[in-house]
Structure formats: structure tokens, C-alpha cells
Amino acid sequence: MRVHVVEDDAGVSDSLALILRNIGHSVVSHRDAESLFKGPLPEAGDAVIVDLSLPGISGAHLVRWLLNLAAPPRVVVITGQSQGFIDHQLRGLVPDGVMRKPLDVDAIAGVLPAP
């Protein structure tokens, strides 16, 4: 079981990986959707944490793609944007969790599969 973190902000990505490893997860960090696609695809037991504002392929696109996989992983959206922006981006998409930044790690851990 792996947790993929797709986040372009180096500080957020690093601190999130640190605390998730701390909890016991195996973490793979990607700075954009494109680099996630280059590696092995997330499996059903995995989780993908997606920042909604990504450079290149947008976070919402990635979420849609992940949720449409035959065996989708758990998908958790993280964002610092306004509720209006989130609603607009996620029209019709229902990820397993949507977390507003600053993040509460217990809330994220609650949505992820047990390590």
C-alpha cells in the first residue's frame, strides 16, 4: 500500500511526506500529474493525495482520471483555494476526501487506508 502525494509546492510536499511516513505510510511524491503518469499506476489499495492547483494537467483532471480507473485508489483532494473554486473544479466528482489547507493530519489519516 502506497500513498502518492501530487503537490507542486516543495514545502507542503516535503512536510506531508514526513508526517505520513511518521504515521507509517510508504510515500511517493510527485510534483505534477505528468510525473505521476510516468511511474507505476496507483492500485486499488493505494491512496493519492492531489493538490487541486497543479501546473500542467490540472488537479481536477487527475482526480477525474483516477476515479475512472477500473480499480480506483482512494483519492483525497487538498487545496488552499476558495470553496467556489473547489465546487467549480470538482463538478460531478466525488473524491474520498476534500481537505482545505492548512491541513489537519488526523483528518487526512482518517481517510487513508490503515498503513
Binding site: 514545502g11 512536510s15 514526513l18 508526517i19 489547507k101 491541513l103 493530519v105
Partner: peptide, 20 residues
């Protein structure tokens, strides 16, 4: 606000990691 949220998020996660 979004730009400020990034370092705040990272800062809080680092602190939460230490606290934990």
C-alpha cells in the same frame, strides 16, 4: 491568501510531525 496558505500548511505539518 492561497500563497500564504502553502507555507502555513507546511509549517503546521512539520510541527504536527514533531508533536506526534
Amino acid at each position: 491568501a492561497h500563497e500564504l496558505n502553502q507555507p502555513l500548511t507546511a509549517l503546521m505539518l512539520y510541527l504536527q510531525a514533531i508533536r506526534r
